[in-house]
Amino acid sequence: MSVALLIVSHSADVARGTADMARQMAGADLSIAWTGGNPDGGLGTSLAAITEQLEAVWREEGVAILVDVGGAEMNSEMAIEQFDKAKAKKIRICQAPLVEGAIMAAAEAASGGGLDQVCRAAEEFSHA
């Protein structure tokens, strides 16, 4: 199996759309989950929803998380901390722009890259 991706945005529409774009890049085999919106459905992020999606996509190969701003990253960190150490080590938050990073990460994951390579691909993105 390849590295899985999780898209975390303040907006469910952005998260879903970003996942669509990443999937288009990488094909249907890519395991990609997304979540967006606060617990009431407004703009924001939800620790419970992030945790649920992480549990759904977690695998030995690892999970790369792409986040947008502020609370998305902190809530993702708190979600990771809920996993046991061995599992948590295989979850990484990429310091990359959400949409572009997701596309680069998806391409790298689809071509068999490991978690380090997937995150690096996202983080090294530049508008060529």
Partner: peptide
């Protein structure tokens, strides 16, 4: 607080 907020103040005040 963390579970209910959804913005950056949730993880911060929650922590």
């Amino acid at each position: 607080v963390v579970m209910s907020v959804g913005g950056a103040s949730g993880p911060l005040y929650g922590t």
